[in-house]
Design a protein around this nucleic acid. Sequence first.
DNA 1: GAGCGGCATCTTGCATACAGAACATATAAC
DNA 2: GTTATATGTTCTGTATGCAAGATGCCGCTC
Lengths: 212, 212
Amino acid sequence: MDNVTAPLRRDIAEQVTARILDGRLPAEGRVNEVRLAAELGVSRTPLREALVELTDRGLLVAEPRRGFRVPPLDVDEARRLYPLVGELEALALRWTAPQDLLGLADRLEEQIDEMRAALEQGKELAALDDRWHALLLSACANAHLMRLIAQTKPLLKRYDVLYFGGLDRARRSIDEHRRILAAIREGDLTEGARWLVQNWVNGAAYLGQNPR
Amino acid sequence: MDNVTAPLRRDIAEQVTARILDGRLPAEGRVNEVRLAAELGVSRTPLREALVELTDRGLLVAEPRRGFRVPPLDVDEARRLYPLVGELEALALRWTAPQDLLGLADRLEEQIDEMRAALEQGKELAALDDRWHALLLSACANAHLMRLIAQTKPLLKRYDVLYFGGLDRARRSIDEHRRILAAIREGDLTEGARWLVQNWVNGAAYLGQNPR
DNA sequence: GAGCGGCATCTTGCATACAGAACATATAAC
DNA sequence: GTTATATGTTCTGTATGCAAGATGCCGCTC
């Protein structure tokens, strides 16, 4: 698919994103361009292009003459981000052709079964959950909406460390997925969208207390 | 407020955006970095940072080893963008504190009156319309949603040239604004959001035929 | 006349260089 | 002891340099 060599700033943006999400670039900390460039084995030029990109997505903030900073963790921000992603995904669901969704239904069900199995075995569900939502939205033709979703979701990952859902949350989420699937099979996308929003709003409900 | 000097890429991004919107950088055309940098009187480094930014916002596309291109005009894209902006603004309206909206009501009404006066004098309404929507959303506290809106709206401006609404559309739009304001005063944000979506969806309805 | 190959040129992508602003440390004044 | 100031260092923001891939032109072949 991608037969041409991707520009370096793409890799760099991913690596810097990973460092922000796992805390190697700590919240509130400033980004030292020369040091980071050295660690990544690249020069400052493509690094800065990547940093500009991440700034536009909200993963960094730029302060003139002071470079780039990792924004502070803010539970209030997280409580707003979960519903935002929920509404964006709901929109994408409502704007997907119902017959395309029906074509995905069997695979969506399979993945729900996999999640139940993983839950019983005590495995981590986050990756499976991401995959399910990605499949659900895979038929949405609104490229710009999909771009907004892709750019917003990483912001949430910063708060996964605060996330104390446990089994309770997992069971509830799987149940919500089943309801979304049922609504799709009945052709009621409005109902499906409602449960999709719920799925994300409930996610926010399981956020921990103020982290600082 | 902004007592520090803004980085050069901010100005450049604005100027390049202007050139895309008014056609000095034509659709389908490639961006020649050395020429554009010379015309703007800057070097390629901050120019490229600006181009990366605009690419992330969808105003440009990047092709590896071929630089940046202005994406083609696509009426289907426009027909999807108008409702998208509508839904985003509706979300912002629903997530604004009702009392804050009430505080804006008088000014919103004044601006509607200005628009009516401008309409009778045959003046251009686009700028007034932009200002009204900006005021309407000015109290929304969801920074990330506001960022998405700010990044998406410029994409629409590319299609203003295709826009043949005329007086009919203008009158209808002003009426929709009045209904939004009435809903705000009644405290019915759901109803206001519905009309706000309508306002944008109707905008798309006035798009011209296929441009190519 | 149409298609193809080779060569010169142009352009991008990345690396490096440099000037000025921000920062830190230490010294001086009170 | 605390605050202010001076100065050297660090870091960012922008400009410039360079190598490799893309583009275009010319002539050749059929």
